[in-house]
């Protein structure tokens, strides 16, 4: 028996918005510790890793490990039937072929119940090595979304450079080019870009903006985002989900042909 209660539907809604464009179907792996999901996009270029800790949810129980195969678009549609503030319970019996959703209104005067068919999903689980990154940049998630959106109007790829001066995003296209630089600034003045950079080595890497655009769908989950980079390894983009967990994205770089 698996059952997780969220005080508000909004966290689940936002998690689905942050994953559904990248993966169609995914196994939600539920254990005594919590809920984990790891899935690659169909082209095997990016990966999303979600972790929600059971002990930080309103209530949580999971006696036996269970893998729930979920069509993310269907789950998104069902969650749209909940108001943001509805208390939300998701439940599945061991060996169940459905997941049950219960939405309770704030005043507890309305209860909705939906069942969603589960799927058998063959997914390839990747082992992600522990990595010491050369550069980790913490910045506003809104600012990161803005930069990705702006540079997508110029080109398909972004070159990210991190050095002791700060971080620079650059794009080139047929019609022109653009760069956005943010200075590392430890002061917390109003209006400053307010980024922190933890740097051991300068790095310069290229990435497809198309995937970064998918990642920025997680911005409503957190005011901040962290970008971790090392030469010749995938970028890691992390959004914390309050005290409950995180959503991490990995993106393989564009490399010299």
């Amino acid at each position: 028996m698996f059952e997780a209660t969220f005080n508000q539907a909004s966290i689940l809604k936002q998690v689905l918005e942050a994953t559904k464009d990248l993966v169609n179907d995914a196994n939600w792996d539920c254990s005594a510790e919590g809920i984990a999901l790891q899935a690659m996009d169909s082209s095997h270029v990016s990966l999303v890793s979600l972790s929600l800790r059971g002990d930080e949810l309103a209530s949580y129980r999971c006696e036996n490990q269970i893998s729930l195969g979920i069509n993310m678009n269907t789950m998104t549609k069902i969650l749209k039937c909940a108001e943001n503030n509805d208390r939300t319970i998701i439940r599945a019996d061991d060996d169940a072929d459905v997941m049950v959703f219960v939405f309770e209104s704030e005043g507890r005067d309305k209860t909705s119940k939906y069942e969603m068919k589960l799927m058998d999903i063959d997914s390839e689980h990747l082992g992600i090595p522990e990595q010491e990154y050369s550069a980790t940049v913490q910045m506003s998630s809104k600012e990161f979304s803005r930069i990705v959106r702006d540079l997508s109007t110029i080109g398909e790829n972004v070159e990210i450079t991190v050095d002791k001066e700060g971080i620079t995003f650059g794009a080139k296209g047929e019609s022109g080019s653009g760069t956005v630089s943010l200075k590392s600034n430890p002061s917390v003045d109003e209006g400053s870009s307010n980024i922190t950079i933890d740097l051991t080595d300068s790095v310069k890497l290229n990435f497809a903006l198309r995937y970064l655009t998918f990642f920025t769908k997680a911005a409503p989950l957190s005011d901040n985002v962290s970008l971790s980079l090392s030469a010749d390894v995938p970028l890691m983009v992390e959004y914390a989900i309050g005290d409950v967990g995180f959503i991490r994205y990995y993106l393989a770089p564009k490399i010299d042909d």
Binding site: H44, G127, P234, A252
Partner: peptide
């Protein structure tokens, strides 16, 4: 020209 790397080049199958 740069080409898109795949994740399999970096992460092994678990």
């Amino acid at each position: 020209a740069k080409k898109q790397a795949k994740l399999f080049s970096f992460f092994g199958k678990a």
